[in-house]
Design a protein around this nucleic acid. Sequence first.
DNA 1: ATGAAAGCGCTAACAT
DNA 2: ATGTTAGCGCTTTCAT
Lengths: 334, 334
Amino acid sequence: MNKTIYDVAREAGVSMATVSRVLNGTAVVKEETKAKVQAAIEKLGYRPNAVARGLASKRTKTIGVILPDVSDLFHAEVLRGIEDIAMMYHYHIILTSSDAREDREIDLIGTMWEKQVDGLVFISERITKEIVRTFEQAQLPVVLCATDDPEGRIPSVAIDNESAAYDATRFFLDQGIANIAFFGGPTTHRVTMERRHGYERALQEAGQSVQESLILHAPDMKYEGAHSVAAEFLRQGHHAAAVVAASDEIALGYLNAVRDRGGNSPQDVLLLGFDNTRLSTIVRPELTTVAQPTYDLGAVSVRLLTKLLNEEPIDDYTVRLPHSIIERTSTKRG
Amino acid sequence: MNKTIYDVAREAGVSMATVSRVLNGTAVVKEETKAKVQAAIEKLGYRPNAVARGLASKRTKTIGVILPDVSDLFHAEVLRGIEDIAMMYHYHIILTSSDAREDREIDLIGTMWEKQVDGLVFISERITKEIVRTFEQAQLPVVLCATDDPEGRIPSVAIDNESAAYDATRFFLDQGIANIAFFGGPTTHRVTMERRHGYERALQEAGQSVQESLILHAPDMKYEGAHSVAAEFLRQGHHAAAVVAASDEIALGYLNAVRDRGGNSPQDVLLLGFDNTRLSTIVRPELTTVAQPTYDLGAVSVRLLTKLLNEEPIDDYTVRLPHSIIERTSTKRG
DNA sequence: ATGAAAGCGCTAACAT
DNA sequence: ATGTTAGCGCTTTCAT
């Protein structure tokens, strides 16, 4: 397979430039010679070397993806969306996990530059000034996925997290429920705080006061930590009639803490998760959840990035995808 | 950031060859000039262009990963192992999903060659002759992950699936249980069939006959399809005292089918899953499962691949990682 | 210990 | 419509 474009040119009796032209469709070539070239390519089993191409053209047809952790359900699903659309536009993906550490993120942006990716899809818990500065320095087209930056200077694709949590809280308030708790990830997590604000706004609009004791924060968006925090919450004798959780896993952490004490949902607590991951239908009771278009978040991010790369006209640099509440068993009151 | 090695050389007052040497540590450079070069690099904010490097050295420091679907829990976890160790050895990952389609797999191997990856980690449901031929043609070092090839010609890292299923079946047999069902993925899925053989061997050794009616196959390793198949199985009036499932999701599909009819586990059926994914502890009852060292499967695959790439001595081209049964609530008899 | 120079396999002017 | 040629930014002989 280690033939070059020269070999093909010789075999076809044309110049390498012509071969390049039929390869890239970058100029008109006579049907006849095109056929000769294609026959030669076929015969030799020639494949163009993407690295050489990348060096010569300064476009590698690869997109860098930086995210906190691939093994996280939500990210894995977003990634699938990224990958599918990238493939559709003939881009490849270079994947790296940052573990949500800013120093790693900054470092990775640098190595993405070294790899000469054409652009970057960036998923992070928070977009700091340092990060933004690194983007600018690297001069890489970037799309933020599933978050945005506070200043709105960087193109992004996400849902409106504040409204989503507002809607989720209203879902309970409209049923006349008081004692609604919020259960988020860490306070350093931008999305968590946006959702918390939505929760607080809904409460305030309804004339209910925000009780600090009903606001829980897990160490991350995963099940295990949430389970511990919820267990401690219940052990201290706290009680919530309903819980708005910032992820499905967090909701399940709360659910199992309740179960550990002999309770269950929806009988003892109404639970509303976030993300509509596959978990929410696998688990019993099935989990009511705020659906983010997870796959689409990735898919649309890449589409936006390709527009940036091709300098296509762009309507909106800050894309807001719709969310919706999917009602299942965990909020069905007897 | 678009400085070249020439800019650094000029700034430091040396030749580009010297800069290259300090960059790669490929030859001895006087401490003094090394310092000058490093100062220049620092000053200019120079970063080496990995694409140019790749073209000149014919080694790109990237590993291609082809797997059926990133958004699958098991694969996502394996991938994390791949990524971590790759990073540790200063390799990057180019990721592609094949959807378990052979034509895509073959196509992707080709594009991985185009990208000039140094090696490949390949995860697939079955290794056909066609695939093996493509590997050879591409002349790419490959490690199979979580499977092996029937002929054992390609380096691989996996568990012994036959034994694992044998052990799982024995787990029930040793408790004097008859009527043990096997619930796998599709019959075209190599790992499913290996596990099925282990199940059958255990039954035969115990003097029990293999009943076709107690062998179920889901369309894939996921929850949804398994749920339907299990529901149909129960609707037809079949009954199993225990189920050895080929994945955690398949086990949960069976579980919920039982629940849909008012039953539960472990009361009405003892359930044993496979993979020890995060699901198994999130769900209630907690799922007994055959633990594969999922992360390690990926990690060890990459380690093996790096040995291949560096021509380090290799003890074993067919690595078998250990499995174990983790006993939880779903198999606890009253 | 360092420099000069020839590629790596391709794209993209520039010619014709 | 096709060919010639100069790079792209490095690594790697080969000299010195």
